[in-house]
Amino acid sequence: MQVEVLTDEDGLKGAWFAATIIEPSGEDKYLIEYKTLRNDDDTEFLREVIAACNIRPCPPEIIVVDGFKVWDAVDAYYNEGWWVGVIAKVLINSNYEVSFIEYDEKTTFNLADLRPHQEWLNGKWVVP
């Protein structure tokens, strides 16, 4: 099953990473394999046991027709994962400055690397 996994590892906190559930691993835990994160010697994709509360289905695709506006909540694809931010500035050529409030950082992204932010609440996807 294809999912996204929230990690609490230093430098990656708050980001969701694409993964595959390999098998159950105890009560409310699963062995997963990341689709983008690699092990320390870069020989294979990283596997680890994750609590079920840090696993969610992949969000449905939402087509963005007219781009984003300032203050829109987005997920930005950065460092192999999806990070929650807000549009701080609309730039030219479908580029946006995204503010990551938790990290007090701003970075520029192209529309292709952004998606509307969605929350997985009570078994349903919700757009805040």
Rank of each mutant, 00 (worst) to 15 (best):
Q2V: 02
E4Q: 15
L6A: 04
L6E: 13
D8W: 02
D10T: 06
G11E: 13
G14T: 07
G14F: 00
G14P: 13
F17P: 13
F17D: 11
A18S: 14
A19G: 13
A19S: 14
T20S: 12
I21R: 05
I22W: 01
E23A: 06
S25P: 02
K29W: 02
L31E: 15
K35W: 01
D41F: 13
D42G: 05
T43I: 09
T43L: 04
F45T: 09
L46S: 03
V49E: 15
A52N: 11
C53K: 15
P57E: 08
E61Y: 08
E61P: 03
V64H: 03
V64R: 03
D66V: 00
F68W: 09
K69C: 08
W71K: 14
W71M: 09
W71E: 15
V74R: 01
V74H: 06
D75S: 07
A76T: 07
N79Q: 10
G81C: 12
W82H: 06
A88Y: 05
K89E: 15
K89W: 00
V90S: 04
V90L: 02
I92D: 15
I92W: 14
I92Q: 14
Y96F: 11
Y96N: 08
F100N: 05
F100L: 13
F100Y: 08
F100R: 03
T107W: 07
T107C: 12
R115D: 03
R115W: 03
R115A: 09
P116Y: 01
H117Y: 07
Q118Y: 00
E119A: 06
E119S: 07
L121W: 08
N122P: 03
G123N: 13
V126T: 10
P128A: 02
P128C: 01
